[in-house]
Every structure is written in structure tokens, then in C-alpha cells.
Design a protein around this nucleic acid. Structure first.
Lengths: 214, 214
DNA sequence: CAAAATTAATCAAGCGATTGATTAATGCCG
DNA sequence: CGGCATTAATCAATCGCTTGATTAATTTTG
């Protein structure tokens, strides 16, 4: 059959990513995942070694692509700070909303207040994104383009926190916005442009207004 | 023994709240909770009926106090919009940071993308806080105090999202801020005043600046 | 003593993981 | 090419363990 023969491993990871986002890591069982993926349970261990192996494999798959996206932004050092920041917002929000299941899963696990090997690993990954953003902000402050007494660290919380609120708690944000934020078409037509525009307006208001931030 | 005889039920709920925040609902076992609370496992079911009963009892205990806090703010209709907003930020952040374990636990469960009876219940609770905030914003826009083309819905995401980012992912925010955000003393001395001040500056910049938000 | 509180022991169900057997795919050699 | 050997993929069955919950017996309390 000449039809699309998507890789079976990839298919399992797609399903697992969704189920982990739906139920959480502990709430999702290997039987659930294998059942919904239409494969025998033993295949998960055959391919990925263990349940945690499946979880980590989902990471491996997403991270590399994400890293290259980020690096593409921070390397455009020819641009002025605001253009770089603007580009970061656009590309970052695009990527995150496209991979919303992954980011729900990721942030859910890191919100355990007890440190584990896994939360440490996730923390490291997230901090890479944070540093790209922070570097742009600090560069802008240094060159005088951005307000010098802006709170850089808490602005990070606002940038990623706003995004998380929309993406990670879909029931809440859907109720607030009035449409299903998990729906792909809605994301493209409404959510993405609105969120991008809002985020840039907010950042500009805080970083580039005339008032003293005190 | 005349020593402090704090209610045993309350003690169990205190411990359970912390363990749920540390491990998540599914990750926390009844043996863990009873063990750390120093009571027999069967006592959980004796007092609260089931594991879910413990979870819900934690809610009951926190919600009523929280509601009165919120109502106290929205009823101060003599104040101008900015004063009300400012008061909301202060009181809300105080309350949330004091009960950080509860809010970690709460947001963690609602970030499951699959709807359940429990996530619906939590969504309803969270939406009450959201409406208090939204009413203040809309009132301010109506009276002309706030920028008329501000995105009210996404500003909600920023207000609660920024807070969540700091409170719910303590490993991340501690790494960014350079101190332990779970430490009570640090919260009082550094986190609370800084976050309150930042949040109000950010809101003012977005809602009350001169530039057109387009 | 009677009621409430507390305990250890036990239960069925579900968990992740492994097993050994079976089938499908691939490689190798004459 | 054709037949055998080797590897990869898949399966049902089951392992040992942990889970949340319940029991029946015991202790504490008023």
C-alpha cells in the first residue's frame, strides 16, 4: 500500500503526548496509551524501555526543533532590540500554540513543588528559553531602547506566564475568551494573531513608555 | 497535656495540601499523606470518606475565606477604578502567596486538558476570581479611567498568569529570581512587595499610558 | 459501660514491566 | 533466483507490587 506510512514510534509518541496532557503523567497509564495508539502494551517497553522512557522520548523529539527556532532569533543581532523582541514573541507563540499538548504536559510536571530528576531536567530546558528572552531585554536596556528600571525578571514571568495561562489551562482560557483554544482553526484565525498583538502592545507599554516606573 | 491541641482534621489537611502540591493528586498516595501526618491510613477514610474526599475538604476549607477576601474588594465601589485595582492586586497576591501550596495543587489539577467533574468544579471557583478582576477593569474602561482599547480578556491572562508563573513553578521562578520563593521569610521581605509593585506598574503602563494600543 | 477513635490486617483492582511464543521482515549464500 | 538463517516486531499471559478502600478488633474517652 502506497498510502502514508507514518512511523509507528512517532504515532505512539503523538498519542502519548496527548494522553499525558489530558491525564497528567501519573494519571495516564501505559494501558491507556497503548490502547488509544492501537498497539500492544509491550510495544511501549520494547521501543522506549519504560513509561518514563516514553515521556523522555516525547521531549527528545520536540526539544531539538525548538532549540533551532530559538537560536534563529537570538542570532539576528543586526536587528534593533524591539525588532528582535517582536520577532521572538511571534515565533515563540507560534511554536508553543502549535505544540500545545507538549507544553501542557511539560509545565504540569514542573509544577510539582518537590524536586526530582525529571523536574530538574525540565527546569534546565525551560531556562534556555528564558535566557533567550532575558538577553534580548537586557540588550535593549543597555542600549537605552527599553526603560532602564524595568523589572527584567518579573517581565519574564509575565511573558511566559501569560502564555501558560492561555495554553496550559484550556478550560479556563476557553471560558474567558469564548471559544475553544484547543481547536486548531480557532488558534490560527483568532488566538494567535490576538495574543501576538496583545503581547507586543503590553511589552511596548511597559518597556517603552515615558512614565517613570516607580 | 495542656499543649496546643490543634484539630487533627486540620493537621491532616495541612499535610495533604503540601503533599498534593509536591507530588500532584495522582502522584500522592494515601499512605504518603497518612504517614507524613502521623496517623493511621484508615483515618483518612474515617474522616473524609475517600482520597477525593480529602482533596475536596482542602477546597472547602480555603474557598470560603478566599471568597470573603474577594468580596471585600469588589464592594468598595466608592473608590476610583485604579484604587480598586490596586487594592485587588495587593490583597489577592497576599492571599495567594500565603496559600501557595493550595494554589499549586489547584492549578495543577485544572491543567489537565481532559474535562472531569473535578476540573469543572475548579474552573468554576477560579472563574469567580476572574470576574472580580474583570469587573474592575471594565468599570475603569467605562468611566474612561483606563485605555478603552485594552484587551480585557488577555489582561486577565497576564494578571493571573504572571502570578501562576511565580507561585506554581517554584523551581523556575526561584532560579530566575535568585532566591527560594517557597521560603516564608523571603516571600514577606522580597517577593510580595516586589511582585505587587511590578504588577501595578505593568497594569498602569498598559491601562493608563498615552499611546494608542494598536 | 457505650460511643467514638484508632489500629493492624486484609481486600480486589490496577499498575508497570517481563516473559516466552509467534509472526513478519530481512539478510545471506549457492 | 530460492531456500535457509537471523533479526525485528507483535502478541497474550502473567508477574510482583502498590493503590484506595474496608474490615474487625482494640483502645480511648466521656
Amino acid at each position: 500500500m502506497e498510502k502514508e506510512k507514518i512511523d509507528k514510534k512517532d504515532h505512539i509518541l503523538d498519542v502519548a503526548e496527548r494522553v499525558f496532557a489530558e491525564q497528567g503523567y501519573d494519571g495516564a497509564s501505559t494501558r491507556m496509551i497503548s490502547g488509544e495508539a492501537g498497539v500492544n502494551m509491550a510495544m511501549l517497553n520494547y521501543y522506549f524501555g519504560s513509561k518514563e522512557g516514553v515521556f523522555l522520548a516525547i521531549f527528545e523529539r520536540r526539544i531539538s526543533a525548538f532549540q533551532s527556532t530559538l537560536l534563529g532569533i537570538s542570532n539576528d543581532s543586526g536587528l534593533d532590540p524591539w525588532a528582535r523582541l517582536s520577532q521572538f514573541v511571534d515565533k515563540y507563540l507560534d511554536k508553543v500554540i502549535n505544540n500545545n499538548c507538549f507544553h501542557i504536559m511539560l509545565n504540569r510536571e514542573v509544577s510539582k513543588s518537590k524536586k526530582t530528576e525529571l523536574t530538574d531536567k525540565i527546569t534546565t530546558i525551560i531556562m534556555r528559553n528564558v535566557h533567550v528572552f532575558k538577553d534580548i531585554i537586557e540588550d535593549g536596556i543597555k542600549t537605552g531602547a527599553f526603560n532602564k528600571d524595568a523589572d527584567r525578571e518579573l517581565l519574564i514571568a509575565t511573558m511566559f506566564g501569560t502564555k501558560n495561562y492561555i495554553v496550559n489551562t484550556p478550560h479556563i482560557s476557553s471560558a474567558i475568551l469564548g471559544y475553544d483554544v484547543m481547536d486548531t482553526k480557532m488558534q490560527e484565525d483568532k488566538l494567535k494573531p490576538r495574543l501576538k498583538n496583545y503581547m507586543k502592545t503590553l511589552l511596548k507599554a511597559y518597556l517603552m513608555n515615558e512614565n517613570d516606573n516607580k
